[in-house]
Simulated assay, not measured.
Amino acid sequence: MKYELDIHTHTIASGHAYNTLQEMIYAAKEKGLKLLGVSEHAIAMPGTCHLFYFHNLKVVDRHYDDLELMLGAEVNIIGYNGELDLDEETLEGLDYAIASLHTPCLAAGTMEQNTNAYIKAMENPHINVIGHPDDSRFPVDYEQFVLAAKENHVLIEINNGSLNPKGFRQNTRENDITILNLCKKYNVPVCLNSDAHVASDIGNTTFIDPLLDETNFPEELIINTSVDKFKLFLSNK
């Protein structure tokens, strides 16, 4: 299956990634992507960029020959009622926003607390994607989660980095299979992302693709197959 976009990537601005923005753009072009999304970690993540970084994204060109660039953020959920670490003004200036749970930014709660944190974040009109909701360190009621994504018009991410055997998230394969089966059942689209922290990893779905085959996941529910499909989804939020 041919994918046109990868919207969860990080540059050196995030503090623990290894390539510049220009290097990421070059790699995305070399891999034949039509759209690259760069989503630096927002301000609650230790070592990441300052708030001013997100306010100055307007200076960056968005077109590089055949490649379009979108600049967003991986926003941290910092409370069980969906509180985020970027304010409304900052979120409004982004091309898109991914909301994620990270252990340095919020201690794992109960299943009820974690599920509520995700659902309340989805209700924010500026949140377009929930990032890597597959980590058993943050147990989630996945049926409630998937239904809330459908109701709030939010994409659920299937994260290639989570599935990497060298990764630190727990039980991700089993959780992603559960998520994919529920998304298929309820007709909820997903976004396949690399979570690349190095340029060579952009567009990588090596660990995702076998799960799509195993679950017989429908192509029409994969947003990455078309830039137009992705943009239409964003415009309907």
Rank of each mutant, 00 (worst) to 15 (best):
A27I: 02
R137W: 01
E220R: 02
E151T: 08
N124H: 03
I222Q: 01
E219A: 10
A199Q: 10
I158N: 01
F145Y: 09
L33H: 05
A73W: 00
G167I: 12
K29T: 06
L180S: 05
Y64A: 00
E88Q: 06
L67A: 00
H55A: 13
A107L: 07
K166F: 08
V154G: 05
T206K: 10
N181G: 03
A117R: 13
N187D: 14
C49N: 15
D66C: 01
C49L: 10
V59T: 03
I98S: 13
A27M: 14
E4S: 15
E88P: 10
G167Q: 13
G37F: 14
N152Y: 14
Y26P: 03
N193G: 09
T110H: 15
A17W: 09
P46C: 02
F54H: 07
H8P: 07
I12R: 08
G167L: 08
H55N: 13
M24Y: 14
C191P: 00
R169Y: 08
P46T: 11
N56E: 07
G93E: 09
T172Q: 15
G15Y: 11
V198M: 10
L51S: 14
V129D: 00
S39A: 15
A13N: 09
G47P: 12
H197F: 02
S39L: 04
Q22F: 12
G37Y: 15
F54R: 06
Y186A: 10
K31G: 02
E89H: 14
F217W: 08
K150A: 13
A108R: 05
N159I: 04
I25S: 01
V75M: 04
I77A: 07
D66F: 04
N160P: 02
P133H: 10
R169T: 12
E68L: 00
N236I: 07
V154D: 03
C49D: 11
G47Y: 08
E174A: 15
Q144P: 11
A107G: 06
T103W: 11
L155A: 01
H8R: 05
N128L: 07
G82V: 01
R169H: 10
G32K: 12
G15I: 02
F233G: 13
C183S: 10
K58F: 14
K120V: 01
L71V: 03
V198T: 10
L35R: 08
D141S: 09
L94N: 02
F145V: 03
I158H: 05
V129H: 03
I98Y: 06
R173H: 10
V198Q: 15
K120P: 04
F207M: 03
Y18N: 11
A99S: 00
P46G: 06
I208M: 12
D134Y: 09
N204E: 12
A99G: 02
F145A: 02
S194A: 15
A199V: 06
E89Y: 12
A97T: 07
D134V: 09
L33M: 03
A107Y: 02
E30S: 05
